[in-house]
């Protein structure tokens, strides 16, 4: 189990970094979706089945669709994007930052003798009761959030009457 976990963790990190480093927005979005899928695998391995399903379907699916539709709305040539946004120049220090940050974190973990371990007993089979009984407030918040999403689509995406 540890092997699969470690591999998918590494994949997650790599996909995230790739999605930030890649100069094409489309590639970025796809790498993000892949990272999301990796996170789903990770969650599944850790026993969070429901969360994994939602993660894969909502984040990996829905968000990617939103991104791609937004990207396709702004169809500018690839070269122009490179010139205009100076991505290469701006991201020059990114790998170094990541490496330095990683080393720093490992050093801190070593210096502080920091270690985390999972609890021995895991309760993973009452998700429905927990979600529907004790998190009702969150569900109410979700409903309102989705409502706002609907209103936002209505307000922000609709063409204005005057323009026609």
């Amino acid at each position: 189990m540890n092997t699969i976990l470690s591999i998918s963790l590494a994949c997650l990190l790599v996909f995230c970094i790739l999605s930030i480093m890649s100069h094409s927005l489309l590639k970025s979005a796809i790498f993000l979706a892949l990272a999301s899928a990796m996170l789903g695998v990770l969650m599944y391995m850790m026993g969070a089945v429901w969360a994994a399903v939602i993660e894969v379907s909502a984040c990996s699916g829905l968000v990617t669709v939103i991104f791609i539709s937004a990207i396709s709305l702004s169809n500018i040539k690839k070269d122009d994007i490179h010139k205009q946004y100076e991505d290469k120049k701006r991201m020059r220090w990114f790998p170094i930052t990541m490496i330095v940050g990683g080393i720093l974190l490992i050093v801190i973990a070593l210096a502080k003798d920091f270690t985390l371990t999972s609890a021995l007993q895991q309760t993973t089979d009452h998700f429905k009761e927990v979600f529907w009984n004790t998190r009702q407030v969150d569900i109410m918040g979700q409903i309102v959030t989705i409502l706002i999403g609907g209103i936002a689509v209505f307000v922000l995406f609709r063409e204005e009457q005057e323009n026609k």
């Binding site: 969650m43 850790m46 026993g47 969070a48 429901w50 969360a51 939602i54 993660e55 909502a58 984040c59 829905l62 968000v63 939103i66 991104f67 539709s69 937004a70 985390l116 371990t117 999972s118 609890a119 021995l120 007993q121 895991q122 309760t123 993973t124 089979d125 009452h126 998700f127 009761e129 927990v130 979600f131 004790t134 998190r135 969150d138 569900i139 918040g141 979700q142 959030t145 989705i146 706002i148 999403g149 936002a152 689509v153 307000v155 922000l156 995406f157």
Partner: peptide
């Protein structure tokens, strides 16, 4: 959730967070 052994609750949190994330993405795209 894994560390404190309360995976159900953390799953519930994650589901809510993901829903909110999607809506934020929608508003941002708008």
């Amino acid at each position: 959730g894994r560390i404190n052994g309360n995976m159900d609750l953390s799953q519930a949190f994650v589901v809510t967070v993901i829903v909110i994330e999607v809506i934020v993405a929608v508003v941002f795209a708008g």
